[in-house]
Nucleic acid binder design. Sequence first.
RNA 1: CGGGAUGUAGCGCAGUCCGGUUAGCGCGCUUCGUUCGGGACGAAGAGGCCGGGAGUUCAAAUCUCCCCAUCCCGACCA
Length: 576
Amino acid sequence: MKMSRYLVPTLKEDPSDAVITSHRLMLRAGLIRKESAGMYIYLPLGLRVLQKIIAIIREEMNKSGALEFLMPELTSADLWKESGRWHSMGPEMIRIKDRNGIEYALAPTHEEAFTNVIRMIVTSYKDLPVNAYQINTKFRDEIRPRFGVMRSKEFIMKDAYSFDSDEDGLEGSYQIMRQTYRTIFKRCGLETIPVEADTGSMGGSNSEEFMVASEVGEEVLLLCEVCGYKSNQERATCQYQLSPTNEDEEALAIVDTPDVRTINELVQFFGCSAHTFLKSLIYVADGTPIMAVVPGDREINEVKLKNTLNAVDLELAPDAVVEEVTGAPVGFAGPILVKGKALRIIFDTQIKTIKNAITGANQRDKHYKGVNPGRDFVIGQEADIVLVVAGDRCPHCGNALIETRGIEVGHIFKLGYKYTRAMNVKVLDKNGKAITPIMGCYGIGVNRTMAAVIEQHNDDRGIIWPMSVAPFQVHCISLAKNEKEEGAADTIYSMLVDAGIEVLYDDRTASPGFKFGDADLIGIPIRITLGKAFFGDSSSIEVKLRNKDEKIIIAKDMIVDYCKKQIVQMLQKLNA
RNA sequence: CGGGAUGUAGCGCAGUCCGGUUAGCGCGCUUCGUUCGGGACGAAGAGGCCGGGAGUUCAAAUCUCCCCAUCCCGACCA
C-alpha cells in the first residue's frame, strides 16, 4: 500500500483526552478516531489490525471445532423475556421500539439468541456437543465509557456458546476453550494470566478470566506466588481467622460516643484494635434494605455480598434509609436492633469469633461495648463477604497474596442450565428420552485485545506490533530524490508485494526524519530503507527491526527472501 | 448518578480573573523555491457562529443564568 494513497493521519502531539498509552498511541498512529464518547471509528490502518486479530480468533475457533454463526443485533424483547433478562439486564441494555411499538434490544450479549437457534435446529444428542460462535458487535450502555476502546458502548466480541448432553461433556468443551484461548492470546503476542472470576449477570458456576497484566487494568488480581492461586478480587477468598482470645465475656453496656462514627474515630475513642468493631453497613438489595456485618478492619466485597443475597442490584443505602431501618443516623448502626425493627443481616464468617466487640447501638451518639455474638444477637446467616487484599493468606497454601492490576480480554464460564431450562431446550438422548443440554459460554473482547497488545508492546517512540497482528509486515521507506530513484524504489516495492508480503510503502515527499518518526510510531515489525546505500552502486538495502536497534544491510537480490524468512520466524515464535 | 475539571482553526494551547482595535501562538494544511538518513528552511496563503441559548452592557471569547458535550475519580463488564 502506497502511503501517499492511504490515509494515515499521524499526530505529533498527544491528544488531550487520551490518558493511557494504548489510547494515546492508537490516536497518534492514525488507527482510530473518536466519534463520540464510547464510540470509535477504525481508520484503514487500525481496521487491518482488528481484522488480523479476528482472523486469528476465527482460525483457532474453527480449529477447535466451533461453528461460526452471525446473529441479528436487533433482538426481540420476547427472547429476553423468556429468560427473564428483559428485566434483569437493567439499563445497561439499550432498548428501542419500531414504528409499531414493538420492543427490541440492541444485543449486549447473545445467550438467548444462540440458545434459541440451537432449540430450533438441534433435536438429537447426536448433534451434541456443539459450540456455536460469532464475531459481532455488542451494545452496552456503559455507566462510564473509558480509556478509548478499552471500555466502549459499542464493541466487537467473539462470543461462543457450547451445548453438551451432560456435565462431563461441558467440562470437555470448557477445557477445549480454555486451551483455545491460551493459543489465541499467545498468537496475538499477549501474555495473559488466567484467574478465577465471578460469573456476573450471565449466571453459572465455574469461571475463568484471561487478564493482561497492566497498571491501567480495571481489574484487581490477587496472586499467590507459591501455589499459583490466581483470582479476581471480586471472587478472591483467603484463609483468615481472628486470633482467639481467652477473655471472659463482659456484660453488654452502652457507651456515649458523641459524634464518633468512623472506624478510625472509634479506634481512637476506645483505644482498641479495629477488628473488635462490628462494622455494620446498610445496603439496599433489589429494593429491600439489608445489613452486612464485617470485622472493623475489613472492607466488604460487594460482589460476594450480592451473590450471597442472590440480588440483581446492590448499593449502599442512602442516609434516609439507614435512619429509617436502624432508627439512628449513619455511623451508629449495629446488629443489635432496637425493638420493633427487623432487618435481614448477613454476618461475615469471622464475626462469631469476636469477643467483647464494639458496635453501633442504633441510637444517636451511642455504641455498645461488651458485645458477644450469639448472646447479644443471633447469627442468622453467615457468609464470606470480605474483600481480600494484598497480604491476606492464600486460601490454598496460606502464603501472603500479592495484588496486581489486569485488563480482562477474555472470559470463559460454565453457564449450566440457566438458559436451556428457561427457554425449554430439549434433545432426545440414546433412549429417546428428552434431556436438557448444559451450556458454557466464552467471550473475547476484540477491540480490547488490540488495545492490550499495544499496552504490552510499545516504547517511547510508538507501537511495536507483534508480527501476527501488525497492520503490515514490512514498512518500506523510500528516500528517493528524483524520478529515477523513485522508479528504482517502486521496483523494490513491487518485488515485495509480488512475493505476497504486506508492505506499507512510504512514497511520500517528506524528510527522512519525518518518515522514520512515523514508522516508529506505527510500529510495523520490519522496516526497510531505500536510501543512500540503495541508490548508489552497491544496490544494497538497509533493514531494521522495530524491536531492535541495529540496522543491517541486505543485498537487493536477497531482500525478498530475507523479509519472508523474518516474517516466518516471527510468526513461529508466537505460535510456539 | 455523585465528586472534580475542561470546551477558542484539523491537533496542542494562550487570551477569560480585571469586558474595549481586525482573536493570537506552535504543529499540521495549500503554492513556489532551496533542502533531504532521524520529525529541514524561506516566502506567500487558506482556515474561527471563541460548545449552544438567553441575559447584563454603548460594547461580551471575557460578566450572569440555563443547557450541551468531553475527560478524570467512584458503582457495571469483553
